[in-house]
Design a protein around this nucleic acid. Structure first.
Lengths: 138, 138
DNA sequence: GTTGGTGCAAACGCTTTGCATCCAT
DNA sequence: ATGGATGCAAAGCGTTTGCACCAAC
C-alpha cells in the first residue's frame, strides 16, 4: 500500500521523501479540508523543522500525482484534501470542516438535457455542498 | 431604473459615485465573469484615473448590496459578475468566459434525500458548470 | 458643511523562487 | 555520486489599509 504510493512517485522520477510522506499522512489522517497552515502545523508535529515552502511544494506534487485535490472553500481560502476515488462531490460541514464524500452525481443525469437547453456543451462541473453534520447539529 | 439602484445605495447611507457607477456599468455590459484587472481596465476607459483600490472597494460594496457576486474560476482567480436574480447556476464557457445562467436547480430536488443518506443537513451549495458555448464549439 | 469616498503609496499576507546544502536513489 | 528535494530568506503578487484630499448629499 505504501509501496504502491512509493511507486507512483518513482514512476515520475520523483523521490518519496519523509516530508512528502508526512504531508500525505496528514491528509490521510484527516476527514476534512485543511488549509496550508493547518497542514504545516500537523506536518511539523510529525517532522519538526519542515519548512512552509516544502509543504507548498509537496502539495503541488501530490495534486500533480492526483493523490490530493485543491479546492476553494467558501471564505476563499485554499485548502487540500485526499483525492477521492472516482467522481465524487464533497459535503462540507460548515461548523467542523469535516468532509463527507458523496458519490452519486446528480449532474451527469441532467447534463445532456442541459446541453440541449442552453446550447453549451457541458464538459465539467464543480459542485460542493455545505451543511451541518450530525455531530454539529445539536 | 438607474433611480432604483441609486436608492439601493442611499438606503444604506452610501453614495452613488461615478466610480461605483462605472464598475456597475462594466459588469452590466459584459456577459462574463471578469477579473479585477479586467474590470479596472474597463473602468478606466469610462473614468480615467480610477484607482485599483477603488475598484476593490466598489466591488466589495456591490457584493454587500447583492448587486454583484464574487466567484472562484477554475484557475483560482477571483472574478465578479452581476448578481443573478433568484437562485441560479452559471454555465461558464471555458473558451470565451461567457456566462449562461441556468435557473432550474437540480440540487434542491435531491437535497432532502441527500440529507437522509449522509446525515448532513444540507444548507447551501455551490455549483458551477463548465463547457463550450455554441459560438466556441466549431 | 458633513460624512463617506477616492487616490496614492505603503503595508500586508499568502505564495513562489533562488541558492546553497542535503539526502533518497 | 548525482540529481532531485529541502530550508531559509528574499522576492513577488494580489489585496487591504492609512491618510490627506475631494465630492455627493
Amino acid at each position: 500500500m505504501s509501496k504502491d504510493i512509493k511507486n507512483i512517485f518513482h514512476k515520475q522520477g520523483l523521490k518519496f521523501t519523509p516530508q512528502r510522506r508526512a504531508v500525505l499522512k496528514v491528509l490521510q489522517d484527516t476527514q476534512a479540508y485543511l488549509s496550508i497552515n493547518r497542514i504545516h502545523t500537523k506536518v511539523k508535529e510529525l517532522l519538526p523543522g519542515t519548512g512552509l515552502a516544502t509543504v507548498y511544494r509537496s502539495l503541488e506534487t501530490l495534486v500533480e500525482l492526483e493523490l490530493a485535490v485543491k479546492v476553494h472553500l467558501e471564505d476563499g481560502c485554499h485548502s487540500y484534501t485526499l483525492a477521492p476515488e472516482g467522481h465524487r462531490h464533497p459535503i462540507v460541514c460548515t461548523d467542523c470542516s469535516r468532509v463527507i464524500e458523496y458519490t452519486e452525481c446528480p449532474i451527469q443525469d441532467i447534463s445532456k438535457k442541459l446541453s440541449k437547453k442552453t446550447g453549451v456543451l457541458i464538459k465539467t462541473h464543480f459542485l460542493q455542498l455545505f451543511g451541518k453534520c450530525e455531530e454539529c447539529r445539536n
